[in-house]
Write a protein that binds this DNA or RNA. Structure first.
Lengths: 187, 187
DNA sequence: AGCTTGAAGCTAACGAAATTAGCCATCTGG
DNA sequence: CCAGATGGCTAATTTCGTTAGCTTCAAGCT
């Protein structure tokens, strides 16, 4: 009964990695247990169950996304910041489709839920981008939601192969960044 | 063994309705069977299984969305058309969150898959909106993807309660429509 | 009318997955 | 060295999707 030395963070990290490999829908307690070298019921020592695991993976994903976007924005402003943030976000989603999928459809239970905190950090990173544009307060909220919708929509549609054949997708994304930049500068 | 007189369309329609009520993740073959007044295995006379059911619900949802958006655009052009299309799309997603969720993550098997056909009809409805703006060909594809990302992202984020705190969401959506309109006119 | 046939229902049974209960071994602190 | 907590295990339960194989109804043909 060799102790593996697991803890909650290790289980969640392995679950996120496995979700990226096999797809979030195919992440099962059994496959995760096998991955970490343990029998299925042992996972319940570290995680409350599948629902809890999903929430923790989602929180991890949002937190990592916030780091990626926040880091990319550092030292940039205006259009550069916007482009860096958008690219970092999309890259993150494309490289980690499984854990990002875990964030779709989870609702934070309250303001001190780690999920809420991670979500707010991600929003904060995008807010930093907007600071480079002159946007008065009533519009700032709307602009933030617009940015988030745009990035989330594009990334999830691409991750789901929602753009059929045809025109180059990277090119569309750069076009989209330019579009948003023009619009924000004109606001 | 009272014959219920089901057929494939009725099963799919009932599945879509049930998904809207209880959430796509909670749609089970058992609950659907109960809903239509039949034992679970009988569903397999009309539908290939859960995967097949999901694809059929997704195709239905895309087709209905295409009708809604296409109908809303009729007789409008330019900014009116854009606003009508965006509102119709969002209304559809908010009123039918379950069946719309079925469309996320399904991939058409080929060009004659009903899923592809319904998806193209929806794209066509948005293309009609863009026809009201002067957009040269290389940009039209990008603009279409931008529009789809924006609508999809906003609607799914709202359906998942992804917008925490604060400002009125309808107001944000109207702001977003105005933003897209300005940007498209300037393209 | 009676027979045939196919579609649409059913029960029974199986397999996969999540979860719970309860047991045992291993570390850690006194 | 022992005591308790911790982390692993096996066994059993439940729920769900799915398949197999039987039965009954409706419709068409002779």
């Amino acid at each position: 009964m060799a102790r593996v030395g697991l803890d909650t963070a290790a289980v969640v990290a392995a679950g996120a990695a496995l979700a990226d490999e096999v797809g979030f829908a195919n992440l099962t307690m059994g496959s995760l247990a096998e991955r970490v070298g343990v029998r299925t019921p042992s996972l319940y020592k570290h995680v409350g169950g599948q629902e809890d695991l999903n929430r923790r993976i989602a929180a991890l994903a949002l937190s990592e996304a916030a780091d990626a976007v926040g880091g990319a924005v550092q030292g940039h402003a205006g259009r550069d910041a916007l482009a860096a943030a958008a690219r970092a976000f999309r890259t993150f989603v494309l490289e980690h489709p499984g854990r990002y999928a875990a964030t779709i459809g989870v609702e934070p239970s309250g303001p001190d839920d780690p999920l809420s905190i991670a979500g707010l950090r991600l929003l904060g990173a995008f807010t930093a981008v907007l600071r480079g544009y002159r946007i008065e307060e009533p519009d700032a909220d709307h602009a933030l939601r617009m940015l988030r919708s745009l990035c989330h929509g594009f990334a999830t549609l691409q991750a789901a192969n929602g753009f059929q054949w045809g025109t180059d997708i990277d090119e569309s994304f750069e076009w989209l960044i330019a579009f948003a930049d023009r619009g924000l500068r004109a606001t």
